[in-house]
Design a protein around this nucleic acid. Sequence first.
DNA 1: AATGCCGGGGA
DNA 2: TCCCCGGCATT
Length: 513
Amino acid sequence: MASVLSRRLGKRSLLGARVLGPSASDGPSGAALPSELQVELLDGAAPQPFLASKDPPCQEQPKEVLKAPGTSGLQQVVFQPGQKVYVWYGGQECAGLVEQHSWAEDKVTVWLLDQKLQICCRAEEAWLAGLQGPGPQAPPLEPGAQAPAYRPVSRNIDVPKRKSDAVEMDEMMAAMVLTSLSCSPIVQSPPGAEANFSASRGACDPWREGGDVSDSGSSTTSGHWSGGSGISTPSPPHPQASPKYLGDAFGSPQTDHGFETDPDPFLLDEPAPRKRRNSVKVMYKCLWPSCGKVLRSIVGIKRHVKALHLGDTVDSDQFKREEDFYYTEVQMKEESAAATVGISAPRTPTAEPPPTPSVTSLPPATLPPAPPKAQSSGPEHPGLESSLPSGALSKSAPGSFWHIQADHAYQALPSFQIPVSPHIYTSVSWAATPSAACSLSTVRSRSLSFSEPPQPPPAVKSHLIVTSPPRAQSSARKARGEAKKCRKVYGIEHRDQWCTACRWKKACQRFLD
DNA sequence: AATGCCGGGGA
DNA sequence: TCCCCGGCATT
């Protein structure tokens, strides 16, 4: 749990929540929040209620803010105006100049050089240049001693972790931003959202989803992000997110209230996520900051994201894919619940994202793209089919080509020539055909490589098998081919046009499968 | 029932 | 070796 908390912390601070945290007066919400959250909120020192503009934090009316019941005498360092100090802002250490230090309120107004803005924060959160460590974890106060009445809990928190987390978060943030193209709601979301920032964590989920990084549930902070795979494969999330989230997602307080069953779970218009294991229920959780809604169907969650967060009005094109980033699949062990819903259909392990282009769903797997594991995916891969017209081999052979000469294939098994064009002949050995098929399949498998762009999952599957070399099911008779046979093509009336094999009731040699 | 083919057998 | 066909599996 601790890890989870710390993680959240980091993320939050990433967004600058700490500095801008909602006012301490926000009694109710504050009380309900996890202790670490409170710390953050209080750290903000800028009790200003959140306003749309997150940029200039408390620069507008810092003074008022400072009037809060002071925690005088706590400060151990006296900041002089103009003095260079460092403060935590936006998840990182920022250098700034002291504008003013209100000893009484234990607040310091700092002009951030980098951000070019003024913020006010608790004196303990700022430290003089040259001194070490971020304010929070800095030595300043003795536990309990001066803890203001309104934030009793904060003192219990082990703040030190913050810094590393923050750094971690920065990286994630960067990745996130890149991925979501600056449109990320997380970035744009109003500061207020942070209060309930379960989403901050979720914000990262997309990657995890996509990568299907099974970090085997280790709930440690490092566990989440250490997996290079997760980060390195920012491929679009697809429905089959990894189950690991489960605990995480549902464990978070925020999630609970957001939980809600999809009204119409059966509306799935895409391959519903299949139940991976007996009692695992797949749900989709909205990652939008402060949302955390959980629905049972992809469609539902997408609709939710689109409608509520992305806004339906906006040209859907612009956000068409965006919504995929704002929900994640979570799996829920649920012995009992399993019975309730027609739990989504099982998703093939390697599954490719569902049909809907946007969702790569998660798909289906995200993608997919899950590293090694995912790779071992099943035999059928989208890239495969798409790269090669399935029927190519068998069907493509227009009668005109093979006909005449192929006709005797049955008799002349060894080899024969196929007139590819009036002047060009291709020598083909029937016996070799299988190998040809092999090479063919080889090529296809190659297309399976990760880089393969997630093509709209072709619905073609069956055909591949046809080209596969020697039939595994050999022993018995040849599986009935799907290709047309002479009988079908020419009809019984024109039996004379059939290939010899067909005439002899043998396997058709003209329209091979 | 229609097809597709294997296994056999006659010429 | 060429041709046919009975019969079974599949569709």
